[in-house]
Design a protein around this nucleic acid. Sequence first.
DNA 1: GTTGGTGCAAATAGTTTGCATGTGC
DNA 2: GCACATGCAAACTATTTGCACCAAC
Lengths: 146, 146
Amino acid sequence: MRISCMRTANIRPATSQRKLLLSVIREAKGLLDAKELYRRASERDASISLATVYRNLRFFKEQELINERHFGHTRSCCYEMKRSGEHYHLVCRGCGHVIEFGSPLIHRLVAEIRRKNDFAVTRVELCLEGYCHDCKKEEKPSSKVA
Amino acid sequence: MRISCMRTANIRPATSQRKLLLSVIREAKGLLDAKELYRRASERDASISLATVYRNLRFFKEQELINERHFGHTRSCCYEMKRSGEHYHLVCRGCGHVIEFGSPLIHRLVAEIRRKNDFAVTRVELCLEGYCHDCKKEEKPSSKVA
DNA sequence: GTTGGTGCAAATAGTTTGCATGTGC
DNA sequence: GCACATGCAAACTATTTGCACCAAC
């Protein structure tokens, strides 16, 4: 039995494409979908293929290097580097902006569910939709156009 | 300005397909995806088309008659009748079972976000993944196969 | 040198749309 | 009768896969 790679993720064959993709994801502020990742990676290595992007996204997910998120209104998944502090997302229906947030209440919620439902939670997907500060102003006072 | 259909959803042209689809969704215990809805509707009206299913799902969504949910691990969306009590979902990674739950903590969470981020929440998507009571037993005692 | 990653193109899955026809009100 | 829903097939988007070739270790 291999005992390597238990805690630290290994980028086993560290191909140039793999390293490139990881740094694009790392350097991104926030979330990226496959197409956008492909676009940004292509700027640095024009020969990279979309299939490689998808294959590596799956690989990074398996290695638990990245998080995959899906927002109800889009068809594609979004990805971001896994970080220490857990956080969730607010998506503005006005400007499309994604705001990160965290709250200790979520911990309590998960603990409650664990207890009440006897359920071992491994992953929390929480996404709120609505209108951010700026977009609220435009939506509210006028007639109900939305 | 039309003042109809403000509160009560209207199934405007109440075509037989539209009525059929709505009753299939209503009679379903839990969530359905488009294909499953199509399959069940086809049993009662073999000539119904998948395009009609999708068009009506969009229509019902606009009328706010149904909720659309998306779980990270599947590619398609799931739908269910909108009901009075808000509820969210636990998805078991072992058996695939979906458990509904609700918690007053979610209300508090939304209120907190509204206040802290000055964000008008219109929709909450919350889905927890993990292992249910039965599947936990098989996963836990043995070696970490997962 | 072997294992496994890559590019390409084709395949697949889920969903949407154009168009001619049919149906509810 | 008119507006709009439907069925069909084709289009489209996101993602996956088979295959020949290439790179990392």
